[in-house]
Design a protein around this nucleic acid. Structure first.
Lengths: 259, 259
DNA sequence: CATTCCAGTAAACACCGTTAACGGTAAACG
DNA sequence: CGTTTACCGTTAACGGTGTTTACTGGAATG
């Protein structure tokens, strides 16, 4: 009957060990090493089988680490967004997406762990990741705010493919669906399309299936982002050029930070 | 000084063993097993170290297998395209892209091997894969034919980002650049954008980072494909609706074949 | 015929995830 | 307080992986 935050001395120690496992794993990953139970255990001054007191198997540990990496990455996205005022969710979104790209390119293995792992065939734990992704909630939260503050053109429910309609009415994506009226749920389809575009171009860049010079110049990413302004109702003057300028500024900022 | 097709008895045997290695690996992969040197060797009635007479290391074998998988997949794309007349490259392209998607969803591991493996940090062998991908040549070949037969609107060279301009003038993508005048090389940028869209949506679907119902219905894929018709100059009446109908027909065809 | 080359082998190394049986220590209970 | 219980971590071991080393046998070459 003890909740996850039980105050027993035992529980606290256990929680601390959990945290150390994850942080050790992340450190190991950041240093270019492979993510292995034995390596984690060794660095913690522990033997590998001991980890099985905390994790059922290797995949569960990977999922745990992936979730935490996603959470940490989200704070970076939020920091980028925070450079723009709270009453400018569109500007914040643009900054966040640029941060997403630069994080992914700088940490390809972490990106692969979180976003390029098959989740369909995996256990329920991983399936939950579809709806519990921290970064997803953050991005979708910004989209929701844009929707509430300036509106986003979207198809009516009966214009949608039946299966898509079912998906937006009972959404399986990281979003607080109660923030959007059922009648307006068509906007979730726009959100999904936007996510697809961002995910697609970043994955292509991270995996390098494209001319390196095009990746380096961020031209493909810029083009993909621009292509999503009209469907989000953000292309009209003066908003469109303003957001394009913000994107260019964020990309330049990151380029200056790199070398 | 012997070329790769030397006619010595020795060379022929060696070539045959190479082929057997790859085919064994593909069979193993198709049966759901992991791709390991030992498993391949065992199935060939050989010990694992013997494989090192043919392959420098594991990654090289993976690359070899990936290349062959790509080649085999391309014949499937070509078969789909062949259902449409040769003077209809646009229809062939639509059919090929639908085949690409259905192949990827049906063979996620093969897809991951070929298209979701990092190639930036790898050896030169893998970097060659950027320009030698069989499937890439096939798809780009269809795009080139569309360009020659009906034209594709494209930016002039001086409208392009400098790095993109360099990339289209000395292309590092699977295409026969000599088929396109230097002055028209801006169309390669359109090709790259089209590839990005196809790659992005299919990768998203294969990795399952989206509501399963949306994947199942192919709605996201359809939307992504439709979005690429205007930039390819294929959206005008009656060509646009015709191609959309072809896409729908191909998707329905595959759906009927599945269960 | 003699030589050279080379595919393949056996043994070993250093890893990996995972399981089993066991010990000691700290919390929980009477 | 003493006793019991629960749990963290250990050691040993199994089967698996990629990879290297030294060696062998037979086929192609001179």
């Amino acid at each position: 009957m003890t909740s996850s935050t039980a105050s027993g001395r035992r529980e606290r120690q256990r929680e601390a060990t959990y945290a150390e496992i994850v942080s050790t794993a992340r450190a190991l990953l950041a240093e270019g090493g492979e993510l292995s139970l034995r390596a984690i255990a060794q660095r913690m001054g522990i033997t590998a089988p001991a980890l099985y007191r905390y994790v059922a198997n290797y995949q569960e540990l990977v999922d745990l680490v992936a979730f935490e990496i996603d959470k940490a990455a989200t704070t970076r996205f939020a920091e980028a967004a925070a450079r723009y005022p709270d009453d400018d969710p569109a500007g914040q979104l643009v900054a966040a997406t640029a941060a997403f790209r630069s994080w992914a390119l700088a940490n390809p293995r972490e990106f692969g762990l979180v976003f390029a792992n098959p989740i369909a065939d995996s256990s329920c734990v991983r399936r939950d990741l579809l709806t519990s992704a921290t970064s997803g909630h953050f991005m979708n939260g910004l989209l929701v705010r844009i929707f509430h503050e300036r509106g986003i053109p979207h198809p009516a429910l009966d214009e949608l493919d039946p299966e898509v309609r079912a998906a937006v009415l009972d959404p399986l994506i990281p979003i607080d669906a109660s923030a959007i009226d059922e009648a307006d749920r068509g906007v979730l389809w726009i959100f999904m399309r936007a996510w697809q575009t961002l995910y697609g171009v970043v994955t292509l860049e991270v995996f390098g299936h494209m001319d390196p010079r095009v990746i380096e110049s961020a031209a493909m990413f810029t083009a993909a982002m621009h292509s999503q302004l009209p469907p989000l109702g953000l292309d009209a003057e003066p908003e469109g050029p303003r957001l394009q300028a913000i994107l260019a500024a964020e990309l330049a900022r990151e380029a200056a930070q790199k070398p």
